[in-house]
Amino acid sequence: MRDLTIGQYYPGQSLLHKTDPRVKIILTLVFIFIIFFCKNFFSLGLMVAALLAGVLLSRVPLKMMLKSMRAITFIIIITALLNLFYSTGGKVLVSFKFFKITDTGVYTAIFVAVRIMALIVGSTLLTYTTTPTMLTDAIERLLKPLKLFHVPVHTLAMMMTLALRFIPTLMEEIDKIMNAQKARGADLESGGLMQRAKALVPILIPLFVSSFRRAYELAFAMECRCYTGGEGRTRMKQMKLKGLDSVLIVGCAVLLGGVIALNIFFKAFNVG
């Protein structure tokens, strides 16, 4: 339980690790947008190449990257198959009763599969190179303008940080309670769905009670350390845009330009 890591941060000192998390969040969103903007294999190929460069730059092992893909292999296969069978037009390659596989279908299937993979790798690159704390911090700063509309940005960010902080603590607690109930003869592993759901009640109730006690004590401890909300607080870790960040921003702009150019230039090869 102790080894539990929150999120899926891969510790490192690479350029991508050092990039301002705000820039990383925005660029990831832009990146996703550009990927959807790709219309043919040439522009998509450019994005895949950029992505590979990003992975190499982050020094996160390729194996880790592929691991994040495993969970959604099923979705990729289903979408690819749907596209394979339902696309019309183009030369018929194979035909079997109702099913017809056309060359457009094959292209679309590959195109969609590559696009989904690129999306996943792009977003995991963000979570692999940014700690959850840095992410919440960056989100707080990015959402700051919403304060004008009376959105309690600081409170929300503090809640997120505390939730992240207490996940491992509560996991340990659940483990302890489960063992305590088992020692009293509770049966958690047999029976049907209803029975198992019922067996969870004696675990959840003590968990809730102790969570409230923890919340109470934590609130005291925070008050004792002069916490009065977001007003008048300073931060130890400042976020300032550096040269590196502007390079990445310019790089992303160039990519967008490249994709548009390739989309127009190879219009004849557009997929779908």
Binding site: T131, P132, T133, T161, L164, T169, R214, E217, M222
Partner: peptide, 9 residues
């Protein structure tokens, strides 16, 4: 309780 007074991750 040390767990209930640490705020950050």
């Amino acid at each position: 309780n040390p767990d209930n007074q640490i705020v950050a991750t």
